[in-house]
Amino acid sequence: MISQMRRASRSVNHNIAEGYGRFPFQENIQFCRIARGSLFETLDHGIIALDEGYISK
Rank of each mutant, 00 (worst) to 15 (best):
I47V: 09
M5H: 05
G21M: 08
I47L: 11
N15Q: 15
T42W: 01
R22D: 04
M1E: 12
N13I: 10
R36P: 01
S38A: 14
P24C: 08
S3H: 13
I47S: 06
R22T: 07
K57N: 11
A17S: 14
S11R: 15
D44K: 08
E18V: 05
D51R: 14
I55A: 02
V12H: 09
G37N: 06
D51T: 06
G21I: 02
A49T: 02
I48Q: 09
Q26R: 14
K57R: 11
R36Y: 09
I2G: 13
G46K: 02
E52C: 08
Q4P: 02
F25G: 00
L50W: 12
F40R: 08
A8H: 03
S3T: 10
F25E: 06
E27K: 15
R22I: 02
Q26I: 06
L50T: 05
I47N: 10
Y54P: 02
V12P: 02
E18R: 12
R10W: 10
S56N: 13
I16G: 01
S38T: 02
C32Y: 01
R22A: 10
H45T: 00
S11M: 12
F31P: 02
I47P: 00
T42C: 07
G21H: 07
F23M: 12
E18C: 07
E27L: 13
P24T: 06
S3P: 01
I55K: 04
R10M: 12
R33L: 09
A49E: 06
I34M: 09
N28A: 10
D44M: 04
N15I: 00
R7V: 04
N15Y: 03
A49Q: 06
Y20W: 07
D44A: 08
I29M: 10
M1N: 09
F23L: 14
F23D: 05
I2L: 14
M1D: 07
S11N: 15
G19T: 02
S9V: 04
M5F: 11
N15D: 15
G19F: 03
M5A: 15
Q30V: 08
I48R: 10
R10G: 04
E52P: 00
R6Q: 13
R10N: 15
N28H: 05
C32L: 14
R33H: 05
D44P: 00
G53L: 01
L50F: 15
G53K: 05
L43R: 11
N15F: 04
L43F: 12
S38I: 00
Y20I: 02
S38L: 00
I2S: 06
G21E: 10
F40Y: 14
S38V: 01
G53N: 07
P24M: 07
G53F: 03
G19V: 03
L50P: 04
Y20C: 10
R22S: 08
N13D: 10
E52V: 05
R7N: 11
A49K: 04
Q30Y: 06
G21N: 09
I29N: 04
E27T: 10
Y54D: 13
G53D: 06
F31N: 11
R6H: 08
Q4I: 01
P24K: 08
F40K: 09
H14M: 14
I2N: 11
S56G: 08
G21K: 12
R33C: 03
G21R: 12
Q4E: 11
K57E: 12
S9I: 00
I34A: 04
R6E: 13
D51K: 14
A35I: 02
G19L: 08
F25D: 04
Q26K: 14
H45K: 04
Q26D: 15
E27H: 11
R7S: 15
